[in-house]
Simulated assay, not measured.
Amino acid sequence: MELVKKIELLIEKYFAAETTVAEEQELRNYFSQTDVAPHLQAYQPMFVYFSTEQQESYSKTVSLKPRRKKYLAWISVAAMIAIVVSVWVANPFQPNNLGTYEDPEIAFQETQKALEFLSANLNLGIEEIGHLKEFEQAKNKILKNN
């Protein structure tokens, strides 16, 4: 009876992804026996399957030859052409327009606007990094290494 309680606790831990390799081996050993508690027999095929499939192996050799990716070079060339064309279309040969202001007050106000815009976007980026950290923590809980 004590063994059955221990197995029930291990099953709960197993489905919560909190078991160790030794505990999982104990579960496989228990369910490979013929005398399993009646209310736990539903789990027996799963653990027996895991035990038998663990013994299988792939015997053929796998060649890991790197493939040359010629299309990547062309993608980078196309990207550079797109950047050059977009810069030329946005600012076609305007040497006199240097983006300077005659009035220092207007220059100061425009600089403040630009820095506020930059600050707002940086704050959004910092929030996104926080979301990425939360995602990373959740992923590590799900894909826990044993």
Results as ranks from 00 to 15, higher is better:
125 G>F: 08
6 K>G: 00
60 K>I: 03
23 E>L: 01
8 E>N: 02
96 N>G: 10
30 Y>H: 14
29 N>A: 12
8 E>K: 15
48 V>A: 11
94 Q>T: 13
26 E>V: 04
119 S>Q: 14
32 S>V: 03
118 L>Q: 15
72 L>H: 00
107 A>N: 14
119 S>N: 08
138 A>P: 00
61 T>R: 03
121 N>D: 11
141 K>V: 05
133 K>Y: 11
7 I>H: 01
37 A>E: 09
34 T>V: 07
62 V>C: 01
17 A>S: 07
34 T>S: 10
85 V>G: 02
17 A>G: 04
88 W>M: 07
122 L>Y: 12
46 M>Q: 10
64 L>N: 14
138 A>D: 14
90 A>K: 15
78 A>V: 04
82 A>Y: 01
57 S>H: 12
53 E>A: 07
89 V>N: 04
54 Q>N: 12
66 P>S: 05
56 E>P: 00
55 Q>I: 08
141 K>I: 11
16 A>K: 13
114 A>W: 08
95 P>K: 12
111 T>I: 04
99 G>H: 03
120 A>Q: 12
144 K>I: 07
42 A>P: 01
31 F>G: 03
11 I>K: 02
31 F>Y: 06
110 E>Y: 07
142 I>K: 09
114 A>H: 14
96 N>W: 09
137 Q>V: 09
29 N>K: 07
118 L>F: 11
80 M>V: 07
55 Q>S: 08
128 E>F: 14
93 F>K: 06
119 S>F: 07
35 D>A: 14
11 I>S: 00
117 F>K: 13
140 N>D: 15
72 L>I: 11
139 K>E: 11
100 T>E: 14
19 T>N: 13
103 D>N: 15
78 A>N: 04
108 F>S: 14
54 Q>I: 01
99 G>Q: 05
107 A>P: 05
35 D>G: 06
50 F>C: 11
23 E>G: 01
56 E>M: 10
18 E>Y: 00
126 I>D: 11
61 T>C: 01
72 L>R: 15
138 A>W: 14
62 V>T: 09
131 H>F: 15
92 P>F: 05
109 Q>F: 13
102 E>M: 13
53 E>R: 13
137 Q>S: 08
108 F>C: 03
114 A>M: 15
7 I>G: 00
45 P>R: 07
122 L>R: 10
39 H>P: 03
39 H>I: 03
33 Q>G: 12
1 M>C: 03
71 Y>C: 00
64 L>H: 06
39 H>E: 12
90 A>N: 10
98 L>R: 14
73 A>P: 00
24 E>I: 05
26 E>I: 02
53 E>W: 12
142 I>T: 11
3 L>N: 02
61 T>W: 00
37 A>F: 10
39 H>W: 08
110 E>L: 08
6 K>S: 09
69 K>L: 06
131 H>L: 09
88 W>Q: 06
83 I>E: 00
